[in-house]
């Protein structure tokens, strides 16, 4: 038997995390599956748990001049319905899971779960999203892309909690997310792609692409993006295959029961091609 704590305030929660070794549970849509037990038996938690969805301070979405802040206990459904959240993120969430799962799952949960196929990560990497991390004695902030270090590996101490997701405000000319799943709802991505750009004059001022499910973590390559930025749209289109070959090296998918290496790679690169072909002045 395990103990379950249900703190009502952030302060209580941080105290608990400081005092005990607890598994944080938000929507539980990953945790419960990872700890499933035969039917009719209690969930197979391996240690005491801390349910965080009752903490009011973590349930807000708000903004300032530079950022949008999403509390870590806000459900995916609420994020999807919020008009201040960037459209690309809302569209990403629409492609995740099913209405029932989105009703309870959280964005922080998707981040902390650090799955190579986590859909929101693709867009969060693209948007340079950050997270705020709290513990009883500390408050820090880091990029999502630094927080996730490998498959299910994250930079989080045992007394820490993600309190917010922080999204810098950008005005892209075009930004979209595309999920390639085995079916149209309730499915794990075989490949996911996000791209965004800004054109000024005839030149690309900002160019970003990120890929999910093709490597241990989301693939976004700053150095490659820098090589593309400042070129003209025309040039970029001309050098499409060169750009594709740059990315090819970073895309290292696996074979598994859901798809295969060759498909994932070809489709990831096709999505990049399509993105480049559709760049618009």
């Amino acid at each position: 038997m395990v103990n379950a704590y249900v703190p009502k305030t952030l302060e209580d929660c941080l105290k608990l995390l400081n005092e005990f070794d607890l598994k944080i549970v938000a929507g539980g849509t990953d945790v419960l599956i990872q700890n499933r037990a035969p039917s009719q038996l209690a969930i197979g938690y391996k240690k005491d748990v801390c349910y965080i969805l009752q903490i009011e301070e973590l349930k807000k979405i708000y903004e300032d001049d530079q950022y949008i802040y999403i509390g870590s206990a806000v459900s995916l459904e609420e994020i999807m319905d919020s008009m201040i959240v960037p459209e690309i993120l809302r569209n990403t969430i629409l492609e995740m899971a099913s209405p029932a799962i989105r009703h309870t799952a959280t964005l922080a949960g998707n981040i902390a779960n650090a799955s190579p196929a986590g859909d929101s990560l693709v867009t969060l990497y693209l948007l340079d999203a950050e997270i705020e991390i709290r513990s009883m004695n500390n408050l820090r902030r880091m990029k999502v892309s630094d927080f996730i270090t490998g498959v299910r590996k994250i930079e989080l101490a045992k007394d820490e909690l993600i309190s917010k997701i922080i999204i810098p405000k950008f005005e892209f000319d075009q930004a979209y997310f595309k999920k390639v799943g085995p079916r149209l709802s309730d499915a794990i991505s075989k490949v996911a792609f996000a791209g965004a750009y800004i054109v000024e004059g005839k030149k690309i001022k900002d160019f970003r692409v990120s890929f999910g499910a093709v490597n241990v973590t989301v693939v976004r390559a700053d150095e490659l993006e820098q090589k593309i930025i400042s070129r003209t749209v025309k040039d970029i289109k001309k050098m499409k295959e060169t750009i594709v070959s740059w990315y090819e090296k970073a895309i290292n998918p696996i074979d598994d029961q859901r798809s295969n290496k060759a498909y994932r790679k070809v489709v990831a690169l096709n999505l990049l091609r399509e993105f480049i072909e559709n760049l618009n002045l």
Binding site: S98, P182, R183, L184, S185, D186, A187, I188, Q257
Partner: peptide, 11 residues
């Protein structure tokens, strides 16, 4: 059910 894909109403 995660890996054996049957159609949903969306499909």
């Amino acid at each position: 059910m995660t890996d054996y894909i049957i159609p949903t109403a969306m499909d």
